[in-house]
Design a protein around this nucleic acid. Sequence first.
DNA 1: ACCCAGGGTCATA
DNA 2: TATGACCATGGG
Length: 220
Amino acid sequence: MNPSIVSHQQLYDLLFEAYGPQHWWPAKTAVAMMVGVILVQNSTWTQAAKVVDVLAEHNYLSWRRLRDVDEQTLWDLLRPAGYFRVKTKRLKAVASFVGQYDDDLGRLFALEPAMLRVKLLTVNGVGKESADSIICYGAKQPVFVVDAYTRRLFYRLGWVGERAGYDEIQELVHENMAMEQTLLGEYHALIVSHVKEQCKVRPICSGCPIIFCPRYHNSR
DNA sequence: ACCCAGGGTCATA
DNA sequence: TATGACCATGGG
């Protein structure tokens, strides 16, 4: 519990002053971004990024090529990111979905955000976090992405309960910040950077209690 | 030899 | 609606 940080905007300002812009999503193209969303699931970004690079080298950052390649070939390329059989199927499901829009992400991203979310959630392997990541960082629409790091930090701040649901946390942010894509996207990126790495190295301000943000689901 | 990582699905109650 | 098993590799 940190009595000195009261609002989302205040937390955002502290994080931004401490770390600066995070330049998310760390992918060169929209296709690489969406492939990365699947690969990073319950894995690390370093492993996911390696696999994205390997896929790029083999020209598999192409929806048509992802649809056409046989699964066992993808297995070997995805192996380092973990869950390689599952993620192979998910990549193919996403490629098949985008195929409904003639592989034109411009068309897909032109959908209204609420409609885009509903459609993305029908794709095997795309849950709320993945859908919102695609909407925010791919389609550049204002949506706040909730993940495990967000939960941890908000819980440590006393802003949400231990068992708070995804939508509850998302609404908390949406109702208390300006609905701007750059702001919401940067906020999430800053939270990830802070909880994952930076909070272990240094506090975000002098005397600021948010130094460590340990996991909690096995504690207490 | 553990524990964990930028989740999601499916079967069950 | 909510819980639990399952998916798999690499790094600490």
